[in-house]
Design a protein around this nucleic acid. Sequence first.
DNA 1: ATGGCGGGTCTAACCCGA
Length: 261
Amino acid sequence: MNVATWNVNSIRTRLAHVTQWLTDNPVDVLCLQETKVVDDDFPRSPFTELGYEVYIYGQKSYNGVALLSRVPLTDVRYGFGGVLGEAIGAEWDAQKRVISGWFADVRIVNLYVPNGSSVSSDKYPYKLAWLGILRDYLQTLLASESQVLVCGDFNIALEDRDIHDPKGREKQVMATDAERNALRAVLELGFADAFRKFNQDDGQFSWWDYRAAAFRRNLGWRIDHHYLSPSLYERAQGCTIDIAPRALEKPSDHVPVTVQL
DNA sequence: ATGGCGGGTCTAACCCGA
């Protein structure tokens, strides 16, 4: 099975790119982030016409995640509350960033981790706290499910080789030690990076700033990831970044990343 | 470079992303 993740930066603006990519790359599951649309206005039919089931968890203007699947998913969970229940305050799901479903023998978790804005912003401690809730969420899933794939836009580059220029990174959001340590605490539950099973190169990125001709100069970051529980990591046969959509007219600033299981 | 581009919507002396 093939599972892809793609932050599309508005599903309505990127609709033609996503449908074309799915036609060329008919993955079993596509995890979308930053759909930026309420559920009633999500463009379902272009995907159902391609043979995909559509599961959405959106909000107005910001955030929003979705799962597209070639077969119906079971046990779809919406938000942190969908797994942690009322024990977690509803405020943690005010921003729609988490959706999860069961495909074949794999629990797929699709995340849009907060960006954090800047180290001095209120959004930065929110991001760190959010990663703490994520740890509880995944620990709860792992109590009953052993094959878990966690993917999405993590807004964190875990290693210096994941950044075009790591100089000053300890003060830069997406690469501070606190963010990396918060993500490592999540991964210590038993997850490993599918991409690094197959590729040890630097210069491998999934996001490039719209400004300063960053894509043409390959000034990017690798912040979109597939993390796998142990048996899935052993089973993984490949993990690839498709940079082609970044060169289209009016692209998303992220590109799709696909894991083969 | 407290913002160069590009989403969104309260179309702006706007907000937000990464």
